[in-house]
Design a protein around this nucleic acid. Sequence first.
DNA 1: GAATAAAAACCGACTGGTAGGATTATAACC
DNA 2: GGTTATAATCCTACCAGTCGGTTTTTATTC
Lengths: 203, 203
Amino acid sequence: MATNTDLETIRRTQIITAALAKLSEAGSFEVTLDDIARAAGLSKGGLAHYFSSKEELVRAAFREFFDRIFLRSKETMDRCPDPVSKLLSFSWLYNWDDPDVNLGYPLLFDCMALAARDPEYRALFHDWVRSWIVLLEEAVHEGIKRGVIPKCDPSGKAKAISAIYHGIALRWYLDRESHSTEWAVRSFTEAITRLVQNIPKKR
Amino acid sequence: MATNTDLETIRRTQIITAALAKLSEAGSFEVTLDDIARAAGLSKGGLAHYFSSKEELVRAAFREFFDRIFLRSKETMDRCPDPVSKLLSFSWLYNWDDPDVNLGYPLLFDCMALAARDPEYRALFHDWVRSWIVLLEEAVHEGIKRGVIPKCDPSGKAKAISAIYHGIALRWYLDRESHSTEWAVRSFTEAITRLVQNIPKKR
DNA sequence: GAATAAAAACCGACTGGTAGGATTATAACC
DNA sequence: GGTTATAATCCTACCAGTCGGTTTTTATTC
């Protein structure tokens, strides 16, 4: 028997799941509360019972999704033994068959467009980026300690690696006709590998 | 005395300039035709005389802006003598005091969010990316010919360089509190420099 | 070089539809 | 029977696009 709180949790997950799907499909401006309510098997009124405004719902949905992606990133990374392979463990970001990928990129683009103007969304984006960077930073740090990565500023390096993934993802997703998956994987591998190599002696 | 066509050109530029400002400010979904009309010193009706729909106007504005940025990129690049410095000539993208920068990023984010769903905008994005890549590709090619860049696939390399710029720009613009301009410049310089260096011998 | 006709540019009120939020009604449950 | 959950309406604001009409410009004619 579901207690009060249980039902609330269930409903909220239901709604957020539906919201994520619809948001991904249509974008935060074009999606309507009715769309989301219907997709969640509720009416608008029912939805209003759990989320008092569209803003609130949308933000909750984004936050939920970013958390999910972060967790997944962490798990994937943890399965890699050595630091460098950890840094290169994000190739799942470039897989058309992955449901998170198909759902996620439109959401991410939306979030960025919102973040370009709205400080609240900027904070959301910041948090997400931050968690990702911390993850990478640890790996860089470990790599330095083990001597497989040359001494450097781990934080700056982690940010650069993260940004490279992001930049390549952008192109891969939005301009797929000229940016193949092979290109994406090859490019991030090469760029990141070189970024954590010793600088070659002067020619 | 202005001929027919002259006035039309003037007005269209007027409108597009106003549209770009307003689009950058508010985003394509939140901006209204009235806003743009007013900013252009026209009424809604007057605006309708030149652009038959919001869609059309927005797209024209984006296209115009991307053209402008491309031209600027080209000019900046052409002023660099050697191939590698050409590849590194985009540091103006990370300058808060640049008006194109302040205007441009919100536009770019909007365009990407639109492109994530709408093929028309995807085509726009594609064209812009393409022009940029061609520019970089030429420099890479020249570098290979001159022997300052190791043999490689110039197109793939150009795409990677371009994506790196873009990725770093993203972070720099959206998460400014943890991504300084110094970080941005240092990171793209390092990443791209390494990307066009000879691979160091095995350790 | 006026006078007039024709066309282009422009205005602003109106319309139809939409969507977010609020209110009210109803069902379920303790 | 009162509290919670949900549905069904309603209200209001907003906005893209339209359209009749007005002003301004251009062309034409005498």
